[in-house]
Simulated assay, not measured.
Amino acid sequence: MEVNKKIALVTGGSRGLGKEMALSLANKGLDIVLTYHSKKEEAEAVVSEIEALGQKAVAIQLNVAESSSFDLFFQNVATALKTTFDTDKFDFLVNNAGIGIHESFLTTTEQQFDELTNIQFKGPYFLTQKALAVMNDGGGIVNISSGLTRFSFPGYAAYASMKGAMETLTKYQAKELGERKIRVNIVAPGAIETDFGGGAVRDNEQLNQFIASVTALGRVGLPEDIGGVVAFLCTDDAKWVNAQRIEVSGGMNL
């Protein structure tokens, strides 16, 4: 039995950025618990990819919008930790799960606002709170923000506001969890080619070209540009990185 094997829990790990994060973490030698909302087959395929890399993995269903389900979720996590990993704690939490709603400030509805709040802010707030009971001291939390907290792009007023709240929360978490030697950082991707927000950045050639034109490195981001940064934050190489917002955007809107 390997004594020092670290385990990371990645929410929304079945596709897009979360999948790349999970695979990058596995490539660093971590075992993975990943969550999915509805696409169980996709999640199981990622588990198989991780196992092919020589790591252990398990997929568990989670709806981050339903904070009332978190107690049951962590019961399932506890069972998986015991049966799959022969332990009772994990080390790193990556709060990745999320959605994008493209709507102007003027036309955002209360329903859209509440949905974004529940998924992007309330969800990770209380999920992390409950996760701490099954996390080892000396691990870490990686929250996910967006370049849209630094620069504005019409249609993301509510979404970016929730990410701004996560950036503030990150600093408070780092301060309060320091006594447990748990580091908390937040990664802010720029525009990335995924199916996020209906896949607009990937599929709308005009938008894609515009983003590339305002990015110093001259292209739109790819999922693999993000995963390695998140994985780095979950290693000893980042042991002195704490309470930081790390933008990974190729230099957008400089």
Rank of each mutant, 00 (worst) to 15 (best):
M1A: 13
M1K: 11
V3Q: 14
N4K: 13
K5T: 13
I7Q: 00
V10A: 04
T11K: 06
G12Q: 08
G13E: 01
S14V: 02
R15S: 15
G18W: 01
K19L: 12
L25P: 06
G29R: 14
L34V: 01
Y36L: 02
K39S: 15
K39G: 04
E41F: 01
E42D: 06
A43I: 04
E44A: 09
A45L: 09
S48H: 12
K56G: 06
K56D: 07
L62R: 01
V64Y: 10
S67W: 11
S67D: 14
S69V: 00
F70I: 00
L72H: 09
F74H: 03
V77T: 04
V77N: 02
T84Q: 14
T84L: 06
D86H: 14
T87W: 07
T87G: 08
D88H: 11
D88N: 13
V94D: 07
N95E: 10
N96M: 06
G98M: 02
G98Y: 05
I101P: 12
H102I: 15
H102W: 14
S104V: 00
S104E: 03
F105L: 15
T107C: 01
Q111W: 06
D114I: 07
L116D: 05
L116R: 00
N118V: 02
I119M: 03
F121Y: 13
K122M: 09
P124H: 07
Y125E: 07
F126H: 05
F126W: 06
Q129M: 07
A131H: 08
L132Y: 12
A133R: 13
A133W: 11
A133H: 14
D137M: 06
G138D: 02
G140K: 00
G140A: 03
V142W: 04
S145L: 03
S146Q: 05
R150Q: 14
R150P: 01
R150C: 06
S152V: 13
A157S: 15
A160K: 04
M162R: 13
G164L: 13
T168F: 10
L169M: 15
Y172F: 11
Y172P: 03
A174M: 08
E179Y: 13
I186M: 12
G190T: 07
E193K: 15
T194Y: 05
F196H: 11
A200S: 10
V201P: 02
R202H: 11
D203L: 15
N204A: 07
N204S: 05
I211R: 01
I211F: 08
S213V: 03
S213A: 07
T215M: 01
G218Q: 07
R219I: 11
I226E: 08
G228V: 06
V229G: 05
V230L: 04
F232K: 00
D237K: 08
D237Q: 09
K239D: 07
N242Y: 06
A243R: 05
A243D: 05
E247P: 04
